[in-house]
Design a protein around this nucleic acid. Structure first.
Lengths: 215, 215, 215, 215
DNA sequence: AATGAATGAGCTTTCATTCAT
DNA sequence: GATGAATGAAAGCTCATTCAT
């Protein structure tokens, strides 16, 4: 018996296939949810062979973690880039910039939000995932807290702590994300921004208008 | 072919065991997440035998749906009871009552919130579940919209629609829930209430104080 | 808590329920095949409660055997009644009578044939069932052998044993049954009879015509 | 979670294992009947692991259908090969050849016949199976009808249609098969052939003898 | 005698992982 | 490095049987 089959050409491209798997994983989470994201689903999407996940990531769990890591890195990078760019600006402008970022299509789009909450769900019962989600959350929260402290310093409010103000704003942003996650059909990014500035204006009338930062 | 062990005890109480299964399902969702809520897990928790789920609910999916139904019924009942009790009260008192309900330990406790968001996660990719979650959400949202309309009528705001106000409040409550879901360790119910009334007071100074409704 | 339910009236009618179960079993075999004849299926058809089969027959297997026994008894009874009635008649008339019986609607009807072959299938791998099916087969075969011996005595055929003749006829009847079992839609009882007498006439021209026995 | 045992041997030969599964299925049908042919039974016989059936055939039902297809293909192939080989021969010789085929050990052996009737039993209540069994039956019947038409043309019979003749012969072959299925212990292939030619000779004395075709 | 809730062995199927090629 | 056939634990489900009532 003579061998008929030929070895298929081989692309020695380890990092490319690694990235393909991460991307396919994120796509699958969006399409079918993290619960239904099976090895088969990922591999079909990545158009790679069965053993690839275990070859590149040892097991499925590691791939999911790497996908989460990749995902949070994107957020962190744009978030800090924006934060850096307004380092010396007024607190109101800082706030405007960060809110613009967090309600921007880059962050507040269907895929992005879905991935975030699917991972957060898993993180609840899994220490390893929580590491990444908590880190991102902490940075996000600390930033808003710090900006709120500056805003309150500029325009003190009778009997109100900057902590409470920050808490409300953070909660509202989180609420808008979850709203998009659960009702992406009816969600309007512009309405979310508008609502946000109405509340900021009510609290800090000398620093904001309904359109954004005063100065 | 041969029988080895046999439990002697037997409870002839169909509705009781049905309820046990629903409760065990909700417990399992809290403990290990909806993803890991297997038939075995539920049955171990309920201390019932393998065939019970199929006997009482035909299949696991039906049990999950019944558990969701049971869960949303609890919320709806207390929610409407509260709403009914303030029918003729001032809009500010209505708001205070509903917020008190939605941030109360009965609704905003670890188990309750976890179950809610675990089901919401599943609802995203499953029509059947969405039916129940959407119904609850709609009632919740409509109620707050209607109260906000009354509040704005009593104290009009320059260039701000009652819709935007309601949107912000709903979003904030949702945000507080998700905050509890994801950070139940650090979450403080009293802080949530306080924050909420700071925002309400900022918007409607003649109807609210930082402690609640003025009258 | 007071008991609400009342005990349902009880019909003390053991033999009736026994017979109901046997009949429901045979009905089920016809409707869904012996393979799909589950305890539930039988009990639904009999409109009796879950425990009835085990109460009256110990287990499902015993009920099936009793149903087979009941079934073969019917055949045997009509078969021997017919045989008895032509004890002193000519062999040709005996043959005509027995063939008429075996191709009659009482025996060669959809239900009857289906039940027969469904049980025969099971009998192949189950000694207990084979007992009953073999007994019926033996009687059937012996009778035809004996009639053929008489026919050949009355009209000897050159170089042909009565055994071979009988073998062919028995085989043909069996073939007609199986034909009905597998193609009951297109099967015609009259065509079967006609075909049968063509072959008998070809073999014994002085004792048969295409319509039946000569005398 | 932890792996305990692991077979070291592994055959990388997909089509071979596919065929093994088909063969094991047919073996199981012969040994324990189609009713008791479980996935475990098949896999034990094939000495393959649990997941193999679903890997090669998606599910058990597909494997059974493929086994039936494989089985009918064998019959069709030899049947048509024989038919082709006597295309230009006399109708009597054609008949002799086809009967020889259908009563030959290749077709009329215990395994073969058992498989056939087990599948036919299932086909009664299952459309998918009936497709295959009916196709084979139709070809078989049509061929005998056509040969009988030729035989009658060569030697007309008073008041007898070729249809009735064919009906009798087909019925007799079917009867011989079922006889073998149900009584393989006592069945004699030579006796079956002998009987068959006795009947053919009685009908067409100028074309057959008790040994076969005259010319 | 009769009921039907309860049991659990055994069924088919899914799927992350392994490993010879 | 890449492939995909193979593995087997664990999943959900079916169903004959049991037994307190």
């Amino acid at each position: 018996m003579s061998k008929v089959k030929r070895k298929p050409k081989r692309l020695v491209n380890k990092p490319l296939n690694r990235q393909k798997l991460i991307q396919a994983t994120l796509d699958s989470i969006v399409d079918v949810g993290i619960e239904n994201t099976s090895v088969t689903e990922i591999l079909d999407k990545a158009k790679l062979s069965r053993g690839m996940i275990n070859l590149h990531f040892d097991n499925k769990e590691s791939l999911l973690l790497e996908a989460l890591k990749f995902y949070t890195d994107i957020y962190n990078q744009t978030f800090y880039k924006q934060l850096e760019s307004v380092k010396t600006a007024s607190p109101a402008f800082k706030m405007q910039t960060m809110v613009a970022h967090d309600l921007d299509i880059c962050v507040l789009n269907r895929d992005y939000v879905v991935i975030w909450y699917e991972f957060r769900g898993k993180a609840r019962t899994n220490e390893l995932y929580r590491q990444y989600t908590d880190t991102r959350y902490k940075r996000f929260r600390d930033t808003y807290y710090s900006i709120c402290t500056e805003l309150v310093k500029a325009e003190p409010l009778q009997g109100v702590s900057s902590k409470s103000i920050a808490h409300g704003l953070i909660t509202m942003i989180e609420g808008m994300w979850i709203d998009f996650y659960l009702h992406s059909d009816s969600f309007k990014r512009s309405a979310a921004k508008k609502t946000f500035f109405i509340y900021l204006t009510a609290l800090f009338p000398s620093q904001f208008t309904h359109k954004g930062a005063l100065k």
